[in-house]
Design a protein around this nucleic acid. Structure first.
Lengths: 199, 199
DNA sequence: CCTACCGATCGGTAGG
DNA sequence: CCTACCGATCGGTAGG
């Protein structure tokens, strides 16, 4: 029987993944070297390969687990909220909160997904599509006429644009917090949604 | 007196910059090799260095000229439109149109600016800040109470999120065009802006 | 003496 | 878990 991994193994691997996400987010996947990551972790480069198969596997694990987290968030909200408006509000608030806690992982997901190979990239993109579909469904429940005009998904993408783009300008520790911005996004999007009319 | 450059020089350099922007946009700056660019241009790698000093200079020229184009667009709109609402509508429409024609350059601007060195990066970011300030001023003119609550710039960034994010999902040649999406963005943002209230 | 290029190869550094 | 390396490939430049 195979010997079990040491108690701290998973914990240390999580640390490596978190530091890798931070480096990938600030320097990009390609420009980040395994030596930089080893230095950040305080171990030798060879030790890194004890926790991940290779550099590519590092990227795959970061993106896959982040998408899985977002899908779990959607499932939680769908289980708790029945009304379309409350559901959409909860999705916005929960996603902005999640992005605040995982801003590096999220940046890696959006900018470095192109470096995954076809199979892994498709799996990640499929997860993203399920998340977008959940947002589009909530929007469609609020405005069936827009969904009928095939505008549910485009509107969901405009909403994602607002909240995804925050990681380029909203600094944690700055004067404006995620908690203060979230209700603004909700008011702006739900208010705007009421004003949109299909062609 | 120095002999002038050949008539086709600037034209060929523009071609090189356009192809470089396309490669940088799809593979990222670091992962793109000068050999790939040379192949795309149909010339030898050495010939590339006739048109640009080095790979870094390529990135600097692409980002600098794209930001300059956006600043020129802002100046045009400000000269033509006096009313805040018409001005903001014109800014949205003109920017979405510009992004459609320069989607590669825009992706490079947003994703690869980190590879510029400090001086060049600051110049590019300063240009971007002037563009954001123009959007924020138009928003503030429509809703002085929000500008008073320091929400002009955050709202401008949410708007930029919507229109910038389109390059991740809106494909030219697809069923939904920039021309059809632009009025939707205008309705959504201007309608939402009327619904937002400061804290 | 200039420009516009080519084949070949340099010094350094990447992932593993 | 480290030092010491490898095969390959990078950006940039030589002579002609």
């Amino acid at each position: 029987m195979a010997r079990p991994r040491s108690a701290g193994f998973d914990l240390q691997r999580e640390q490596v993944l978190a530091l890798a996400a931070q480096l990938f987010a600030s320097h990009g996947y390609t420009a980040t070297t395994m030596q930089q990551l080893a230095d950040a972790c305080g171990v030798s480069k060879a030790t890194l390969y004890h926790y991940v198969r290779d550099k590519h596997d590092l990227l795959a694990q970061i993106t896959r687990s982040h998408v899985a987290r977002l899908e779990a968030l959607v499932a939680e909200v769908e289980a708790a909220e029945r009304e379309p408006r409350a559901r959409l509000e909860a999705l916005i608030l929960r996603f902005m909160h999640a992005y605040e806690r995982a801003q590096h992982e999220h940046r890696v997901l959006t900018e470095d997904v192109k470096f995954l190979d076809v199979t892994e990239r498709e799996a990640v993109l499929a997860g993203q599509r399920r998340v977008v579909a959940a947002f589009a469904a909530s929007i469609g429940a609020l405005r069936p006429d827009l969904q009928g005009a095939q505008l549910g998904k485009p509107l969901a993408m405009l909403l994602f644009g607002m909240i995804n783009w925050t990681f380029t300008w909203l600094r944690s520790g700055g004067p404006l917090t995620h908690a203060r911005l979230a209700p603004l996004v909700t008011e702006l999007f739900l208010g705007g949604l009421a004003a949109v009319h299909p062609r």
